[in-house]
Nucleic acid binder design. Structure first.
Lengths: 245, 245
DNA sequence: TCCTCTATTTGAACGCGTTCAAATAGAGCG
DNA sequence: CGCTCTATTTGAACGCGTTCAAATAGAGGA
């Protein structure tokens, strides 16, 4: 751990780097196979064989098959962030910004639609690290809500502080809903999802402008309380193993 | 036609009835074990052994371990309907009715909280028959939305037709959201969930009365379009490979 | 009574995800 | 060079959900 040496060290000085190569090899192979044959149909043995390693070795780098999904999710998440930044630099109108970010989301995950179902399934498990509310995904979730915060604050539309406070989380939930719809959408090119997304964005924007009226302040206050309580950071994390209740 | 011993032929002349007994035995045993040890920890072999049958026999009656969850779900669903009917007979105020139905829901599933997570996980899988949007669960879903329809139409509060049309589905989604929160709620007695439920019910009611204003008619129209499109009946169902049951 | 046909029941076997004790590789050091 | 320590790699083995060919039970007909 101290210092130096050999052909393999990272400037980071942590691991030898050889492992990182193997790790990447396994992940690439896995994602390829997932996309080709689907998640359930791809066995760990097949992944290992295609990657030219042993099964045990795959498990040395990924604690479980699920953790491969997590890696996939992290990747598309990054892609979406990048695509969104582009949109947010270009567009100033709230409508264009939200629409662009949402469209970017669907575009990003499009190639993986069929096995995104599995991701959603796993994510729904409270015990899974993939769960959006788990500690492990806290950073990703944070980045997502930050993104929505940027959508509403970086544009040319001024909103009341209440809304600015509540909207990022609400929009995050909203975008999850759209993805849920998308996962079940078998229309060619997921056309229905895109249409649904556009319509709902319009509705969301109208709701936003509606709640700008000072008259509706009490609603916002109440909403804010709920959203605050929804904040997952304050939710105790389900601890798994011992004991029955 | 019917043999004198009685229990060997159904009126509909389909099955012998002996099987029904075995089926019930397996289901009861399974649910007991699930509640005691949890879902993942309960093996099909253990269920079969405890029920005094072979593994293969368990699979003769339940196509998969998942289908045991489905049976459980059907049961608590019935319980909730019963409890709700009681509430709806007693209460006339919209607030009391919605609150009562929601509370009944949480009360009904309370004993199974820890393994309800699994149910949710499975339900999130688009390919699962347990999925709320699947054909298999269409009847249950229908009954649920009918229940919410009864909540709003059977009380002493008159609502605009638009709202009456849109609300059942919206309330169904809302109640799913509460359950999602509940699943992640580790507070003693799920107190946070109950509080969240009460607060959100209050908010929902205020929103309902808000959208009674004729001024907000366009919103309702737009919402109605979305909700109609959300109707899962119109969503093409991902068909499972072989035959039906 | 015996035969037939269907409903039910069995348990071995399969393929999967996962684990683990043990083998190997390679760097630093003498 | 050999020694040591750690990172990496292996493949057999385990327990699981699930399948299936074959055995059994039981009712109705001859």
């Amino acid at each position: 751990m101290t210092s130096s040496a050999g052909l393999l060290k990272r400037e980071d000085g942590k691991k030898t780097g050889k492992g990182e190569q193997t790790r990447a090899q396994i992940l690439e192979t896995a994602l390829d196979l997932f996309r080709e044959r689907g998640y359930e149909e791809t066995t760990m043995r097949a992944i290992a064989e295609s990657a030219g390693v042993s099964v045990g070795n795959a498990y040395y780098y990924f604690k479980s098959k699920e953790h491969l999904i997590q890696a996939f999710y992290a990747r598309t998440h990054e892609e979406h962030l990048a695509a969104s930044r582009e949109v947010l630099l270009r567009e100033r109108g709230l409508r264009e910004r939200l629409l662009g970010v949402m469209r970017a989301k669907l575009d990003t995950i499009a190639p993986y639609r069929q096995f995104s179902g599995v991701l959603f399934k796993t994510a729904a498990d409270p015990a899974s690290p993939l769960n959006p509310f788990s500690v492990e995904s806290q950073p990703v979730r944070q980045q997502s809500t930050d993104l929505f915060a940027e959508v509403i604050t970086g544009g040319d539309t001024r909103l009341t502080p209440d809304l600015v406070a509540a909207l990022p989380n609400l929009l995050w939930v909203y975008h999850m809903g759209i993805i849920l719809y998308w996962i079940h959408d078998n229309s060619p090119g997921c056309a229905k999802s895109y249409r649904m997304m556009e319509r709902s964005v319009r509705l969301v924007l109208r709701l936003i402008s509606l709640f700008q009226f000072p008259l509706l302040r009490p609603f916002l206050k109440e909403l804010l309380v709920l959203v605050t309580e929804l904040r997952v950071d304050e939710m105790p994390v389900p601890l798994p193993p011992p004991g029955v209740e």
